[in-house]
Amino acid sequence: MAADRRQQRKAENLDILIGFLGFFAIALVVVIIAMEVSGQNAALWSIILLGVVLAIWRLFRARQKNNTKEARGPRR
């Protein structure tokens, strides 16, 4: 029961982190598009966006792993 609750909490925290980073990823996409359209150098922002996207991808992987564990149920 406690293990289930812990798994659920972990899944919720992962979701919150994904959403948090997702917001900044969208903001960065808007910044990069604006810079590209206005002819400014957007290399640094692109690298930051890449980092954020990689972090989101890692979190998605962790979320999937956590969901699989949750579906399998607690270890006996």
Binding site: D15, F20, L21, F23
Partner: peptide, 16 residues
């Protein structure tokens, strides 16, 4: 689905 992702989004928006 994704309700906690929305919550994270809201948290991100508050830090803008």
């Amino acid at each position: 689905p994704f309700k906690f992702i929305i919550l994270g989004f809201i948290l991100g928006a508050s830090m803008f």
